[in-house]
Design a protein around this nucleic acid. Structure first.
Lengths: 236, 236
DNA sequence: ACTCGCCTTGTTGTATACTACATAGTATCC
DNA sequence: GGATACTATGTAGTATACAACAAGGCGAGT
């Protein structure tokens, strides 16, 4: 009897694989904002059937990356900087709350020491690799939020992180922005360890606000270059 | 030629209909927390095929009402009061931020006047119907959050509202809780209209905290009664 | 009597066929 | 020549068949 083997490369199910693959293509601007696409086309490209593909698309729709046009097709949502601004502001609210909790009610400060080992280091020990710094930056802010112990806030904060990553990561492609991030994280940690909530909140707010502004400009440049290089990058 | 007509009762698509129907059954405790269910059974009951049903279940999974047990089936998630507490705390954070915005930076105060017409009324004009008061209560808090203009905070707040509605609505089945809600909303509105952010935040916080505590007890009673009445309410 | 392994049954995961529908292109009529 | 109706084509929405898999029952062997 012939056994048909499931040759899933990464995940146990095709839906997840499709999800990761589509997201990758969006992040790499292979699927450009504004592109239209049909389920059958994409299914063929990714080599899954429509069923798991639609599952993936629905997930991505919920996360705001794609939009369903009923009976017509799917659309890669254009980058909406107003929305990113609002997500950054939301981050500020959640992280400032977490910072206050850390200073006032949270007992276990060990997480702060761990963060200091990463961020409060001499210039020579600082990392440069954009992807690594980006991941560490996300971890830094996530760790602060974790201190609240509120899983719902953590969840929402994680979702925000997922949604802004597409532009946020570009921040670390500039050396001076990496330097600034190290500096700012260091002083934030000092304020948190010193138990000074107002100062920590103020530093955190301006840290995120600066990033918000920088990232917008960097992204606009990046987009223009991507468009010039491959004006018809998306299929059909 | 025979034309097969789509007899969708409510929505344009079956997935949405399935979603509403399942949610209704969960809210009515026809599907009890802890119940296991299979897609084929439920599909037959709701009279849709598995495809739109799964779409509905995935949506409900994202909202935390059901849980997918891969290769095994679906589970109606038990009511988790710790989670509800965290959602209430999250509400407090968002609504307090909105209240501050309302007092300090928002120009257009007309929404507050509209709310006052509903909540700041003589006892004789107060509504009693639990469903109506519940809807008005949700609208009250939503309106405050809308004042921020931050659509992401609004969205998250709306999701929180959806997720806690299953227990929150029970709050208004008790007359004294309706009375308390009217009283508390009225004083909150006064503080907001007076532009006193600290007072508004303090009132809002205690208002939500009280509700959190009351609702927990009411729900536990309700659940016990539901369990006694129909110990095997779920199918199979 | 107990344990181990096979096999039956029920479940989701996936692929695919088919329906209803939207859209655009074309031919026809005025 | 312009507007309009019709038709061809491609799309998502839906139903369903089948494969892969999990789990538990049941029997055989000890």
């Amino acid at each position: 009897m012939v056994k048909i083997v499931n040759i899933n490369k990464d995940a146990g199910n095709l839906a997840e694989r499709a999800y990761e693959e589509i997201k990758r293509r969006i992040f790499d601007f292979i699927l450009m904002p504004g592109d239209r696409l049909s389920e059958s086309d994409l299914a063929q490209q990714i080599e899954v059937s429509r069923t798991p593909l639609r599952q993936a698309l629905q997930q991505l729709q919920h996360e705001g990356f794609v939009e369903a046009l009923p009976k017509v097709g799917w659309l890669i949502r254009p980058l909406d900087f107003e929305k990113f601004d609002e997500l950054y502001d939301f981050r500020i609210l959640i992280e400032c709350f977490a910072a206050r909790e850390l200073c006032t009610t949270v007992k276990d400060r060990s997480a702060l020491r761990t963060l200091a080992l990463i961020w409060s280091v001499p210039a020579a020990e600082r990392l440069q690799d954009a992807m690594k710094v980006s991941a560490l930056d996300e971890a830094f802010h996530q760790t602060i939020v974790e201190s609240t112990g509120n899983r719902e806030m953590m969840r929402t904060h994680r979702e925000i992180t997922e949604r802004i990553r597409i532009i946020r990561r570009l921040d670390f492609t500039k050396d001076n922005r990496v330097t600034a991030t190290y500096d700012e994280h260091a002083v934030i940690l000092v304020a948190l360890q010193g138990g000074r909530p107002d100062e920590a909140q103020q530093l955190l707010t301006s840290h995120i606000e600066i990033s918000k502004r920088e990232v917008r400009q960097i992204t606009l440049d990046m987009l223009q270059r991507a468009r010039k290089r491959e004006p018809l990058a998306g299929q059909n």
